[in-house]
Amino acid sequence: MIEYITGSLLVISALVVLIASVGIIRFKDLYARMHVVTKVSSFGLLLLLIALNLLTLKWWVLVESLIIFHILIFLSPISAHVTAKVNLWLDKNDLPADPEAEESSAENKAE
């Protein structure tokens, strides 16, 4: 019985990850894409970790998956915040966000 529940959870979380990557290609704004990465992907990983714990039922698997879950909860908003802040800073100072483009334009000016 537990195998059927685990298999359906696996397929549901795979569909959630597929929805998240469709959202990555469809959304226009950078901040909207960051919403997708921080929320939908961690929801899919949460479902996968629940399925793994239901299947194995060992204590060290529980401990390791709790560590992974807490990393996802507390560090992915921080990394999203850092990326968003740098993007905001680049927009405010009106700098091009691609260093290669700026370097090539500088070379063109020098020539």
């Binding site: 998240a20 959202g23 469809r26 959304f27 997708v36 929801f43 949460l46």
Partner: peptide, 26 residues
């Protein structure tokens, strides 16, 4: 409460994508 909010927000944003929103009214 936080765990419940994570599940709810993941579902809500996934539903936004499925409805065909392109994230323009943010």
């Amino acid at each position: 409460y936080f765990c419940y909010k994570i599940v709810e927000s993941g579902w809500a944003v996934a539903w936004q994508i499925l409805k065909g929103s392109r994230g323009e009214n943010g």
